[in-house]
Write a protein that binds this DNA or RNA. Structure first.
Lengths: 160, 160
DNA sequence: CTTGAAAAGGCATTCGC
DNA sequence: GCGAATGCCTTTTCAAG
């Protein structure tokens, strides 16, 4: 994993495409080199299929933290949720009914990054209190549809 | 959204590919028809880009629930987490340090499905208690890398 | 709406440098 | 690591059912 690999993966994430041509435009890396790099990343288990799902463990973002954020903010919850999401490492923000205002899930590279994350939350205007839980093991499906059988999907989603 | 659309989306999720040829093999739908359908789904906002990320709101799985599962199970936590994950609708399972044993996130089509989900959890052997929270608004990044700036990624991930 | 065939375009692989 | 050339697969289009 060197500088170029990281740039490539970041470009894939940002452009939301695996198209070598567009990745070339974005990164300046020649197309044949992009193929070469992607093949190596695939063999190394970092990316997984046509759609380039990234294996976060392999990548080095293997630490998951769930943070409850209690807040007393001004303005809409959408705006506040956006501020939470813009903290580096945050992947999911849930605005919930009930005691806790927001539940945030973050992916980090190590314990030191967790401290940094919490510190950033605490500094946000409107954040009263945070309560974090380390995750020992995470199973995340990339696609909610995989969780359902075809039968249930047909029942629930076909409209007429 | 008809029967065929659902079958297509399910095949994409299962095979983890957008390859028309493989989707054709799996579904029996002719290749040119697959193109036609996918273009419509794209225009309708159901799928979003090259990688066919599904918009769950548009699809009809707009309800998100977070469930804390307190359990006293036999065997490894991995096996128990697998049983939780195999409940229809469950997308994420986190085995955590602390009071709560598991935090589960599920995507559902409506409130009636929530009851069904909770009932299924309660029936699982080893589940002591569940505590569910409705999500009013969810922001989920499809890729953890998007959360980071290129600078931080280079600092954290480049090894040498 | 569906489909098969044909044409155009983009992608993967290989090779010489 | 790079650029050019090759063959392959995908996408688009179109006319017909």
């Amino acid at each position: 994993m060197d500088d170029r690999d990281v740039r490539l993966l970041k470009a894939i994430a940002e452009l939301e495409t695996g198209s070598p041509e567009r990745l070339h435009e974005a990164t300046g890396i020649p197309i044949s080199t992009i193929h070469y790099r992607l093949n190596n990343l695939r063999e190394g288990g970092v990316i997984e299929n046509d759609r380039y799902d990234v294996d976060l463990e392999e990548l080095g973002l293997g630490v998951t933290v769930i943070v409850e954020v209690h807040a007393d903010y001004q303005g809409s919850y959408e705006r506040f949720a956006d501020r939470l999401r813009s903290v580096e490492g945050v992947t999911n923000v849930y605005f919930t009914m009930g005691e806790t205002d927001f539940i945030v899930i973050a992916r980090l590279s190590g314990s030191d990054m967790v401290e940094r994350l919490i510190a950033e939350f605490e500094e946000l205007e409107g954040v009263d209190r945070t309560d974090s839980t380390f995750v020992i093991s995470a199973v995340e499906e990339r696609d909610a549809l995989q969780s359902y059988s075809l039968e249930t999907l047909l029942e629930e989603l076909v409209d007429e």
